[in-house]
């Protein structure tokens, strides 16, 4: 196969004595979708921030289409990787209307036909003229997150990082946004790195997944195989922690304690 869309090798990041990410490597093929699964302290958010250039890795390399991200210019980097953050209440500029926010990005990247592109983007995420003319304050959480997705897609990046992008939404809204993301993936073939603690949501959107625990990858593979036949005890714990019929919290607690004592 030719060069992967995203090629990450030996990524490390340490804060003081705290190792956030240790020797993380993965590749994302064109049109691929990878889940980074973990709990707080797993290093998944640090990884996301390194991918978009908000944190500098201590060691390791990030290649997008074979080009090192660290060497890219500001605008080139923006076209390589974009992100949707978790909290739609904080990730949009409160003083700009949605249309102005989208126009802002397009103008920066010298898009030839901004008005048409804005309409196209709004359409892609299912927002109408009323939402476009509104400031974030006038929108619901789901609408804001759609706007944030449109903003990330505006410059047609190669890779879209979703950092817990649906976790803050109500259940019924989460499903709507997941469908929007699934459609975008199908229609644009954009590469997706989906950072999440929610295995079911990762399963819905991703082909493959990495399970991170304390900055280390404990398991990786196709998501279905990972869910049906988990090899690592931590992956097993994560899967069994999801509430279901006949769920026994007591058993899971014991499983968790056994895991903690071993490490």
């Amino acid at each position: 196969m030719s060069t992967p869309l995203l090629d990450v090798t030996g990524l490390c990041k340490t804060y003081g004595t705290n190792v956030a990410v240790s020797d993380l490597s993965f590749t994302l093929p064109a049109g691929g979708s990878l889940g980074l699964v973990g709990e707080s302290g797993s290093g998944k958010t640090t990884t996301a921030r390194m991918l978009i250039g908000l944190e500098r890795p201590d060691r390791g390399q990030i290649l997008v289409k074979g080009e090192p991200l660290a060497a890219a210019s500001r605008l080139a980097r923006a076209k390589a990787v974009q992100i949707v953050f978790q909290d739609p209440y904080l990730s949009l500029d409160p003083r700009l209307t949605i249309r102005a926010a989208l126009d802002d990005v397009l103008r920066l990247h010298r898009h030839p036909d901004r008005a048409a592109r804005v309409t196209e983007l709004l359409d892609q995420v299912g927002l109408g003229a009323r939402e476009a003319a509104a400031k974030p304050r006038g929108l619901s959480g789901g609408q804001r997150q759609r706007a944030a997705i449109a903003r990330a897609l505006a410059v047609e990046p190669d890779v879209l990082v979703l950092d817990e992008a649906v976790s803050a939404l109500d259940v019924s809204i989460q499903a709507q946004v997941l469908n929007v993301l699934a459609d975008i993936r199908r229609e644009t073939g954009i590469g997706i790195v989906f950072v999440s603690h929610d295995l079911a949501v990762v399963r819905y959107l991703c082909d493959e997944a990495l399970v991170l625990h304390r900055g280390v990858v404990v398991e990786r593979g196709a998501i279905e195989a990972l869910l049906t036949d988990p090899q690592d005890p931590y992956t097993r714990l994560l899967i069994s922690s999801v509430p279901h019929a006949g769920w026994s919290p007591e058993e899971i607690s014991e499983q968790r304690r056994a895991l903690q004592q071993r490490s």
Partner: peptide, 19 residues
């Protein structure tokens, strides 16, 4: 609205609109 962890994975059928 919640994607299942096991079994078939159909397209989600979300409730339209917002609360």
């Amino acid at each position: 609205s919640a994607p299942p962890l096991t079994g078939p994975m159909p397209r989600l059928a979300p409730i339209p609109g917002a609360p």
